[in-house]
Simulated scan of single mutants.
Amino acid sequence: MSDILPIIEELADAPDHKARARWLLEVPLAVIIRDQVTIHRLLSAAGFHEGIAYFTAEIAALSATRGRDGLAPNTIRMSREYARIGIQVIARGGAEEGK
């Protein structure tokens, strides 16, 4: 029996960056916040640099102090969306990481 939750095992067992990218896009944000140390460790071990960039941007957005409009600052939102686009391309199989 593993010490990590089944949803995190899915990331640990992902065969490639495409599967890891899909996992990052589909996992509940609450899991990203709750298990961020384990997720970062798994992404690092896999050498998934674009995944780490997206993950870091998502954590920053989720942790940011929000303005009166209820949104994170523009710089954080833009960084998150830029990273998300890269992950979406990888998840679709349209590009290899770093290219």
Rank of each mutant, 00 (worst) to 15 (best):
H17K: 02
H40N: 10
L42A: 04
E9P: 01
E26V: 11
I85D: 04
E50W: 02
T75P: 12
P28M: 14
A12N: 14
H40T: 09
P73V: 15
L25F: 07
D69N: 14
Y54I: 13
L71S: 03
I90R: 01
Y82R: 07
P28F: 04
R80F: 10
Q88C: 03
R80E: 11
I7R: 15
A57P: 03
R66Q: 15
A60R: 14
L43Y: 00
A91F: 14
A53E: 15
R66A: 06
R92I: 09
A91W: 06
Q88L: 11
E96P: 05
A64R: 11
R41C: 06
D35L: 10
A95I: 07
A60L: 15
P15D: 04
A61E: 14
Y82M: 05
R34F: 06
K99H: 14
L5T: 05
L5W: 07
A83V: 10
I4G: 03
L71D: 00
M78S: 08
A14S: 05
V27K: 10
R20Y: 10
G94P: 08
Y54W: 10
I59K: 08
Y82I: 05
V27C: 05
I39K: 02
H49C: 11
A19G: 00
E58A: 06
I76E: 07
K18P: 02
G47K: 03
T65W: 04
R66E: 11
I8Y: 02
I76F: 04
R66H: 09
L5G: 01
T56S: 04
I7D: 04
I90H: 04
R34N: 01
L42G: 06
L42P: 01
A12V: 05
R66D: 15
D3R: 03
G86K: 09
Q88F: 00
I85P: 02
R68A: 15
Y54V: 08
I4Q: 03
R22L: 05
R22A: 12
S2C: 12
I8Q: 01
D35R: 13
R77V: 00
K18G: 02
D13Q: 13
A45F: 12
M1D: 07
I90S: 03
K99S: 12
A95W: 09
E10S: 09
K99W: 15
A30Y: 08
R41K: 05
I7N: 10
A72N: 13
I4R: 09
E26W: 12
R92Y: 13
I32R: 07
A14E: 10
I7A: 00
A45I: 11
M78K: 10
K99Y: 13
S63L: 04
R92H: 14
H49F: 14
V27W: 04
D69W: 02
M78F: 11
L71C: 14
L24Y: 05
K99V: 13
R20I: 06
I32M: 04
R22T: 00
L29C: 00
K99G: 15
